[in-house]
Amino acid sequence: MQEKRITCIVCPRGCEITVIGEGKEIHSIQGQQCRRGEDYAGEEFICPSRILTSTVLVHNEGRKILMPVRSNRPIPREQMRPCMEEIKKAQVQGEIHRYDVLIPNICQTGADMIAAADMDWM
């Protein structure tokens, strides 16, 4: 049996949660103050994942815009570096609006990299 102490990052309160389990089996979760924290701690025990953010260069009508991007769901931590390599290589053409998909299913993680801003505003 393994015991893992996890600091919850779901909200700024930062509760310290203790998870006891084995592999993908969870036996107990203690110290959280809400349901979101419990879900997070379980996932963190099994497979720590994070939202990944970066920028992608977009070309539109002779303008070069550095577009902020984010993954639309958490990406397993060990996949972050390969995903960053993919993002660095990406270049996109055209008019981009908030939440347009710029890189679908990045590195087979099931997550898409989407635009976080709207070109109209930049």
């Binding site: 953010t53 976080a116 801003a117």
Partner: peptide, 19 residues
């Protein structure tokens, strides 16, 4: 501030700064 961490209390979801 392209990182996530915004909107957790106001929108109850995690957004990046530009969003």
């Amino acid at each position: 501030c392209i990182h996530p961490g915004f909107g957790l209390t106001y929108y109850r979801e995690e957004l990046t700064g530009p969003e």
